[in-house]
Design a protein around this nucleic acid. Structure first.
Lengths: 214, 214
DNA sequence: TAAGATACAGTACGTACCGTACCTTAATTA
DNA sequence: TAATTAAGGTACGGTACGTACTGTATCTTA
């Protein structure tokens, strides 16, 4: 984002803006992203307007369009800045169940913060664009969450808990896919209990079954 | 939809409209729904406008707004009219695998016809409204596809293929949920092979496993 | 069959938001 | 200090929304 901010003093230290001076560069950019984030939380994606974001940031649309060409890209930038990026390192607690639960619980938080409406809205706006592939899931083999799951399973295999070659990609991504589905289609919050259910009554039994029969 | 058409001659017989007379009631309504359907296919949900629908139906927005208060409700009505409603009767081929495959293949077609962009668009527009629950999935126990799956499994239980009480709702809806997820997140078409995969490497192994351990 | 009600066709309007263009001026850089 | 950059401010043309108001074809009913 913000290709313009290449060579600029990152003067972010002036938190309290007493002088009525003109904000520039990163300061203004952060103000815009914060405004976008707040607008998103208060009015939701579909009702959020570029004008409202600009005016909340006490500037005008130019400052927004100079940086992001569309609402979708603005919001993606705001999400990157204002939602935690969970670590996708394999937890390695020495136990497959715990490892998977740990990963899933980690990734739930940012998903909840973003929310279904925003995800749906982004999917719609990207449709038809060349940007479409940025929102649509990549092939399972390239999906970063699939890779994280695979790393966990590699550790489990090292411990003799699973035989990885018996597990099709579809099974490996199953817990993650179910959580994504749940976030997209349920209006109630995704609880830790639901995550435990997915692992205990679907993923682990399936992994055990495939290990035996393989 | 169309609360106004309570007591009216359903004069749908005049297919070929030679007289330049004024269309009314169901004739006009069908013309509007067809126009909406065609616009949807040609321009997609997000770019479809009420004005374009009206003008394609050779009338004006009033005729549209008189019947459907929003684009979302218009489109839902158009989908009801122009996509097949698959039978949700349990197939009962005498074999669990075939029954499930038959059901899933049946429900795929209308999902494909509707398409991900429209579903996402509808989800966005319904958000915040009281209509939200119409688009969001109901609790598993009330989901019509879950009930269809349950009927299939009841037949299988009668044949001794499964023990239904061992199967949590989450498992029963699993194939259907995965298909819904696939339609929502994949841009490529959902193939019959993917359906077979879901059944053969996820659902059936899981059902077998839960039967044994239960 | 005439009177009355209905709802379609046509038009126009105010509003909202889009994305862009232009100008002035503050801040940064050379 | 001069030149350059990017901010703030404003205004514009364009699209689509949703509503209101006209006149009239059609249906209903008495």
């Amino acid at each position: 984002m913000a290709e313009q901010s290449k060579d600029r003093k990152g003067n972010n230290e002036g938190e309290q803006q007493t002088t009525k001076s003109r904000r520039r560069g990163d300061v203004l950019e952060n103000a815009l992203l914060s405004a976008a984030w707040e607008e998103l939380r208060e009015t939701g994606y579909s009702r959020l307007t570029m004008e409202a974001v600009a005016s909340r940031a006490k500037t005008n649309k130019n400052a927004v369009y100079r940086r992001w060409p569309s609402k979708a890209e603005l919001i993606v930038a705001a999400l990157k800045k204002h939602t935690p990026t969970p670590s996708l390192e394999a937890p390695d607690t020495g136990n497959l169940r715990e490892d998977v639960l740990t990963l899933l619980k980690r990734i739930i938080k940012p998903m909840q913060m973003i929310g279904a409406e925003t995800i749906h809205g982004l999917m719609v706006e990207y449709h038809g664009d060349e940007l479409h592939s940025k929102m649509t899931l990549p092939p399972r083999s390239e999906d970063i969450l699939a890779i994280a799951m695979k790393n966990i399973l590699l550790n489990a295999e090292r411990r003799g808990e699973v035989k990885l070659e018996e597990l099709p990609d579809r099974v490996i991504t199953l817990p993650v896919d179910l959580i994504r589905f749940e976030v997209l289609t349920t209006h109630t919050l995704l609880t830790d209990e639901a995550v435990v259910e997915i692992v205990d009554i679907i993923f682990l039994p399936l992994v055990q079954k495939l290990n035996k029969q393989g």
